[in-house]
């Protein structure tokens, strides 16, 4: 990552490791006699491929001098890829595949106070939108152009915050012991859509990030953020409502998860509670 010759393939290593670990986890789970829906594996794989495409040397190289390519990268890393990754339920895969003691430890981490704080949708929103605002409305963006480490850190933050936000809003499919209510999650998603629209219009009007590229290029980048962000958020909203209408995640994942490693709290999730639609009323 610190080569001076520009972007390297080293950025792909963590993506490859993550995907390999997921596939091994699915395989171990299957060997223990538990099925796994193929579409979740496909979803995680698509998310990982999208991340790989966004951080591969050609994209990194093109993004270095072009704010428009950079913005496409960020929409993919921070909004689209997380939907695929989160729907792949990687934590559930880990809980199934790990030895009992490690799975219990992982479940304890999920229930811990720090996870509770950052996995609240509002906190995830602040990490997500706050990071974006800091990047584009301050000199941070210019600084990332000069430091490979800072550049990589910003991309990692965008991806991590995007996954956290997606997981917090969906309150699933992975166990979310501290899931917020449906109203809170919808409200936070609403705020996120508004924040994206406002920030991208301010970038368009005030030519943020300042002094980086020609005015037209900055405005095109802002439009990519506006429409790309809309598309991704409409998609997330559709996933959220589909899960809500279908019932709850116990129907989708509970039966894939062994009792021994299921966190006690997830047995009665507040998140995707039984939907009115399937109440039979």
């Amino acid at each position: 990552m610190t080569h001076h010759g520009g972007p390297s393939f080293a950025a792909l290593a963590p993506v490859a490791v993550g995907l390999a670990a997921y596939l091994v986890g699915v395989r171990v789970g299957r060997q223990r006699g538990r099925g796994w829906p193929t579409w979740r594996t496909v979803s995680f794989g698509a998310g990982a491929l999208a991340v790989a495409a966004a951080v591969a040397p050609p994209a990194m190289h093109a993004a270095h001098g072009d704010l428009r390519v950079h913005m496409v990268q960020h929409v993919v890393l921070g909004m689209l890829a997380p939907i695929g990754l989160v729907l792949g339920a990687p934590v559930t895969v880990a809980l199934r595949a790990l030895p009992v003691s490690s799975a219990r430890r992982l479940a304890r981490v999920l229930r811990s106070a720090p996870v509770r704080v950052v996995s609240h949708p509002a906190a995830a929103l602040v990490l997500n939108v706050g990071g974006m605002a800091a990047l584009y409305a301050t000199p941070l963006y210019t600084a990332t152009q000069g430091s490979a480490v800072l550049h990589a850190a910003v991309h990692a933050h965008v991806l991590a915050a995007g996954c956290l936000f997606t997981w917090a809003v969906l309150a699933g499919p992975d166990p979310a012991p501290h899931a917020a209510g449906m109203g809170t999650r919808l409200g936070v998603l609403f705020a996120s859509i508004a924040a994206h629209a406002v920030l991208s219009k301010l970038m368009f009007a005030r030519l943020w990030p300042a002094g980086v590229s020609a005015a037209e290029e900055t405005q095109t980048a802002a439009q990519i953020m506006y429409y790309g962000g809309d598309l991704a958020e409409a998609l997330l909203l559709a996933v959220l409502l589909a899960a809500w209408l279908r019932g709850d995640r116990r129907q989708t994942l509970g039966r894939w998860l062994p009792d021994r490693s299921r966190p006690a709290e997830t047995a009665a999730p507040r998140g995707l509670g039984p939907a009115r639609a399937t109440g039979g009323g």
Binding site: F190, A191, A194, H196, A197, V198, L237
Partner: peptide, 13 residues
């Protein structure tokens, strides 16, 4: 712009 952002979010939802 902020008020339009809120309107935009409301209509999308």
């Amino acid at each position: 712009i902020v008020s339009d952002g809120l309107l935009h979010a409301a209509e999308l939802v």
